[in-house]
Amino acid sequence: MELPQDILMSIFSTLEILDLIRAGSVCNSWRSAYTSICSLGHCKPQQTPCLLYTFESDSTKATGLYSLAEKKAYMLTLLDPALPSRFIIGSSHGWIITADERSELHLVNPITGKQIALPPVTTIEQLSIARSGDDKWTWLPPHKDYEDCIFRDGLLYALTSEGEIYEYDLSGPAITRKIVLNKVWRSYDPLDDEDEDASDDLEADHDDESYVWNTTMIKVHKVDLVARMLVEACDLGENVLILGHNQSLCLRADEYPLLKANHVYLSDDRELYIKGCKNGCRDIGVFNLENNCAEEIVSPQLWSNWPPPVWMTPNARKISLETHSL
């Protein structure tokens, strides 16, 4: 006897994405329920982040996904052109931002295989936005060295290398900006502390496999929105941080029980590693803030060093089962 579709959909809405894909492969009834779940966007909202990476398979580059929820690796089959041939710029809401050999930008959903071409890079000026259907980017002043940004409820928050936070309201006909936090530190690069000759040597040998930055300490601060200042926190409490060249995430461990509270899941976000240093080992792991120790995510290492691995939260909308090998 088959379960009614509404009951199946209720059950499927509690599943992690990879479990949902497998469930949709069981039979026609289950496939119909899973297709409806994806089309309506009723998937489980608290999807555990995964690590997207490339690896060698039969002398060619393949794309893999390591599930933190299952502690298991999967191979993904994407549409052409293949992901390993591109630069991975970042990720947000299940989409990977990539650049091809001509520096043209594309959004790629590794779960569905869907790709979206973005406006030409010649129209980008530092922090810029583009809405669906735009043929060029819209610049958001002022000129700053931005490190991270988050979009939520019509508001874009942008963080500079000097600790400034700007809030852009994109919900109205005219974009408005206000300062959430003023500059709190100077822009810092560890290479600034090296003498000139040492810096030249590092630049000349930046493709050497021994060139790697290891995380040995992480300081946590909160933004006091009333006082407009940073307040140092001793730990994350029951929270979890996901850091890298992805959209930074702060998650509640009670909503993501397969992640460790007061831990930081990190991957390299240094610009040098995103654009080059193709043979350098990557600083990827789980950092325990209680004892300031880093742990490996998996051993032995699954991923190639190029393109650098990136965290992503699986997005199951309009999944095509034929794009997967699970």
Rank of each mutant, 00 (worst) to 15 (best):
I17W: 02
L236Q: 02
E16L: 03
L225Y: 13
L302P: 12
T77V: 14
E104C: 11
L20V: 02
S91H: 05
L266W: 08
I116C: 07
N182R: 12
L321T: 13
D200H: 03
W306F: 13
C43L: 07
N239M: 13
P307N: 14
S299V: 07
W303C: 14
T176G: 05
L156Q: 07
E147P: 06
D134A: 15
N305F: 07
V286M: 04
D169C: 09
T215Y: 14
C38Q: 00
K222V: 01
G163N: 14
L51W: 12
L107T: 11
K222Q: 09
T215R: 13
Q5W: 00
L8K: 07
L68K: 12
C43H: 03
T48E: 03
S132L: 15
A23P: 08
L155G: 00
D197Y: 10
Q115E: 15
Q46I: 03
H143K: 15
P119Q: 08
W303I: 13
C250N: 01
V223M: 06
E255K: 13
I116Q: 02
P49N: 06
E125M: 05
P120D: 09
E194F: 14
E232R: 14
L181R: 09
Y74T: 08
R282D: 00
R102T: 07
E56W: 01
W311L: 09
D145A: 13
T48Q: 03
S85Q: 14
S91Y: 00
L326R: 04
D224E: 07
A130D: 14
R31V: 00
D235H: 10
V26D: 00
I7S: 07
P45V: 10
R177Q: 12
L258E: 04
A62M: 13
L105S: 01
I274F: 09
L18H: 04
M1Q: 05
A82F: 15
A69I: 04
V220Y: 06
K136R: 14
D195N: 10
C50H: 10
N288T: 01
Y74I: 06
L52C: 10
I89C: 07
L266F: 12
K72T: 15
E296W: 01
L159D: 09
N292A: 14
L8N: 01
K318S: 11
